[in-house]
Amino acid sequence: MMRFLTIAFTGLLLAGCAANVVTDYDDAVVFGNYSSWAFAPSAGNSSFVSLDGNRVRQAVERELNRKAMRQVAEAEADLLVSWQIVEEERLEQSGVGLGFGFGTGHFGWALAAPPPVREIQEGKLVIELVDNETDQVVWRAASRRYLRESQSPETRSELIDEVVSEMFSKYPPGLE
């Protein structure tokens, strides 16, 4: 019993340490040279700002302000912030399968049906920082947590705030 509890506790501990955000960056870039930013014209990849888009923009502004970076006009910015919510479909089993069987001794028959499967639409947030002079992505963060259609506005807002905060906790690289 003690061995089982130790293994279960270790599993929970490791699951708690799993990163909810993955970042990548150009290791040749000196991030200390960047002091200003603007949203890229294609940020959000839409001609209008959605409800989630507005939440992302507010969270990005808050986090870059915490980094003491100035928001300026696009032409004057050192970095352009591009973001998108990438839609993904995944299959989810819901409930349990059904089955029955009969038999005697060492012989029997059984029938079973797998649990129902349904498609779920989810959105993964990806933020990229682009050097305005070179038009090259210098830093990228992607969430491992997903927005779901069924989430309430409050839950969506909290999730976006948490994810964006965690993303920018890893910017600039090397300060973790």
Results as ranks from 00 to 15, higher is better:
residue 3 R to Q: 11
residue 3 R to D: 09
residue 6 T to H: 10
residue 8 A to V: 14
residue 9 F to W: 09
residue 11 G to N: 06
residue 13 L to P: 00
residue 16 G to W: 05
residue 17 C to S: 07
residue 18 A to C: 00
residue 18 A to Q: 11
residue 19 A to K: 12
residue 19 A to N: 14
residue 21 V to T: 08
residue 25 Y to S: 11
residue 29 V to S: 04
residue 33 N to E: 14
residue 33 N to D: 15
residue 33 N to W: 03
residue 35 S to F: 09
residue 36 S to M: 06
residue 36 S to N: 05
residue 39 F to M: 03
residue 40 A to F: 01
residue 42 S to E: 15
residue 44 G to K: 03
residue 44 G to W: 00
residue 45 N to R: 12
residue 45 N to E: 15
residue 51 L to A: 15
residue 52 D to A: 13
residue 54 N to A: 14
residue 54 N to E: 11
residue 55 R to P: 01
residue 58 Q to T: 11
residue 61 E to S: 11
residue 62 R to Q: 12
residue 63 E to M: 07
residue 63 E to F: 06
residue 64 L to R: 01
residue 64 L to Q: 01
residue 64 L to G: 01
residue 66 R to K: 13
residue 70 R to S: 14
residue 72 V to D: 02
residue 73 A to D: 12
residue 75 A to Y: 07
residue 79 L to W: 04
residue 81 V to N: 06
residue 83 W to S: 03
residue 86 V to T: 13
residue 87 E to Y: 10
residue 92 E to K: 10
residue 92 E to P: 05
residue 97 G to K: 04
residue 103 G to F: 06
residue 104 T to P: 00
residue 105 G to Y: 06
residue 105 G to M: 11
residue 106 H to Q: 14
residue 108 G to A: 04
residue 109 W to L: 15
residue 111 L to W: 14
residue 114 P to K: 09
residue 116 P to W: 02
residue 121 Q to F: 13
residue 125 L to R: 02
residue 127 I to V: 15
residue 127 I to M: 02
residue 128 E to H: 05
residue 129 L to V: 10
residue 137 V to K: 09
residue 137 V to E: 07
residue 138 V to Y: 05
residue 139 W to E: 03
residue 143 S to T: 07
residue 144 R to D: 10
residue 147 L to H: 06
residue 148 R to A: 14
residue 150 S to V: 07
residue 152 S to Q: 08
residue 154 E to P: 00
residue 154 E to L: 13
residue 155 T to L: 10
residue 156 R to F: 04
residue 156 R to W: 03
residue 160 I to M: 05
residue 162 E to L: 11
residue 163 V to E: 02
residue 165 S to G: 12
residue 165 S to T: 11
residue 166 E to P: 02
residue 167 M to W: 04
residue 168 F to L: 01
residue 170 K to L: 15
residue 171 Y to W: 07
residue 172 P to N: 10
residue 173 P to S: 08
residue 173 P to G: 07
residue 175 L to I: 08
